[in-house]
Design a protein around this nucleic acid. Structure first.
Length: 319
DNA sequence: ATCCAGGAAAACG
DNA sequence: CGTTTTCATGGA
C-alpha cells in the first residue's frame, strides 16, 4: 500500500515549448485484456529508449534488474516499468504521470533534428536514439546536484539514497521498502533531529541543510523559478548555498525544462575541446570565462535545445 | 600514495 | 575584481 502524504503533492512544471510539443502525442493505450499491468504502445516515428533515458546519468534513483525491469522512486511513488520494442509496460502511477515524467508529449525527432548539424553530434544522436530528458521533481533535483559537486555518479546515487532512507517516508512496493525523497522541511530546522551528518555528504552537508531551510521557508519557490527566464532563473538558483553555474544549469534543464541550459562539467569540456573548441584548456579547473565561452558556443552551435544536445554528448561519452 | 570524480565556497592578491 | 585553495569521500 502506498502511503499517502498530505501536502506533499509532486510539483511538476508545465513549460513545454509550444513549437515542438505534440497535440496528439502519437501514443495509444492498448485495450486491457487480462493483464493487470497497463501498457503504452510507442510509435516508431517518436523514438523512446527507456534504457537510454534512465541510464544516461540524468537521474539517480532508478535501478535496472537483470531481466530488464526498471524500479524508481518518483515523488511519493514507486514506478516499475520495462520496454519491449514498442511496448512500454508500467505500474505504480497513472499513464498521465508516465507520459509527463518521460516527456512522451514532446516531438523528439524534431528536437534532435534541430541540432543535428555536424557529424559528431549526429553520431551521438544515433548512439543514444530515444534518449529523452525526464521531468524531475524540483527539490529532489536541486538537492541531488548539490550532492553531485566534485563527485561521481555512484557516489551521488549513494548520497541521495542515504538522505531518503534517513528522512524520507517509507514506501512498500512488492514487499520491498523504498523511500520517498524527503520534503525540504523534513531535512531543515522544522524537521526535528537532523542526522545529515551521518549521510556522508562531506563538506556538502551544510549546503544541503541551509538550502533546505531556505526553501522550506519560501512558498512556491519552484513556481517562481519556473516563471522566470533562463538567465533570471539561473541567477536566482545560484543564490542558494551550494549551487553554482553547473548545478544551476542541471536543475534548470532536468527540473524546469529550460532547454537552452548547457551544463558544463569536466566531461563536456573535454568533449567540446576535442571536437568543437580546440583552444580550450586541459586538465585545469574550469574558469568562469571558460564556462561562459562553452555555453555561448553551444547555444550558437546547437540552438535553443542545446541542453538536449548536451545530454546526448554526455551520454555518448567514452571514459 | 596519488589522482580523479556531472564544483562551489572561501581566501587571496 | 578575477584567480587560486580548500573542502570530504570513496574508488581506481
Amino acid at each position: 500500500m502506498l502511503s499517502s502524504s498530505p501536502g506533499a503533492a509532486c510539483c511538476h512544471v508545465n513549460s513545454v515549448p509550444p513549437d515542438i510539443s505534440l497535440k496528439d502525442s502519437g501514443f495509444h493505450i492498448t485495450p486491457e485484456e487480462n493483464d493487470p499491468m497497463p501498457t503504452l504502445v510507442l510509435h516508431t516515428d517518436q523514438p523512446f529508449s527507456l534504457d537510454q533515458t534512465l541510464g544516461c546519468g540524468q537521474v539517480f534513483r532508478w535501478d535496472r534488474t537483470q531481466d530488464g525491469w526498471w524500479y524508481g522512486v518518483v515523488g511519493p511513488r514507486v514506478i516499475k516499468c520495462r520496454q519491449d520494442q514498442s511496448t512500454l509496460t508500467y505500474e505504480g502511477v497513472p499513464e498521465s504521470v508516465i507520459r509527463h515524467y518521460f516527456s512522451l508529449d514532446m516531438d523528439l525527432e524534431a528536437i534532435t533534428a534541430s541540432f543535428d548539424h555536424d557529424p559528431f553530434i549526429h553520431g551521438a544522436i544515433g548512439q543514444c536514439r530515444g534518449l529523452r530528458l525526464v521531468r524531475q521533481p524540483a527539490w529532489e533535483c536541486l538537492c541531488s546536484y548539490i550532492c553531485a559537486t566534485n563527485s561521481n555518479i555512484p557516489m551521488i546515487r549513494r548520497r541521495i539514497a542515504t538522505i531518503a532512507r534517513e528522512f524520507g517516508k517509507e514506501i512498500t512496493f512488492e514487499e520491498k521498502t523504498y523511500y520517498a525523497f524527503p520534503e525540504p522541511d523534513c531535512i531543515s530546522c522544522h524537521g526535528g533531529d537532523h542526522a545529515l551528518a551521518d549521510c556522508k555528504l562531506g563538506y556538502r552537508s551544510p549546503y544541503v541543510f541551509k538550502t533546505a531551510c531556505e526553501i522550506a521557508d519560501t512558498k512556491h519557490w519552484d513556481k517562481t523559478i519556473a516563471s522566470l527566464s533562463y538567465e533570471d532563473a539561473r541567477r536566482e538558483l545560484m543564490k542558494f548555498t551550494g549551487i553554482g553555474p553547473k548545478a544551476a544549469d542541471c536543475i534548470l534543464l532536468f527540473a524546469f525544462q529550460k532547454y537552452e541550459s548547457f551544463p558544463v562539467d569536466v566531461w563536456i569540456r573535454r568533449i567540446m575541446r576535442e571536437h568543437y573548441i580546440p583552444t580550450l584548456s586541459n586538465n585545469s579547473a574550469l574558469t568562469g570565462w571558460e564556462y561562459d565561452t562553452i555555453r555561448r558556443f553551444a547555444l550558437r552551435q546547437f540552438g535553443s535545445y542545446c541542453g538536449y544536445a548536451q545530454e546526448y554528448l554526455y551520454a555518448a561519452r567514452e571514459g
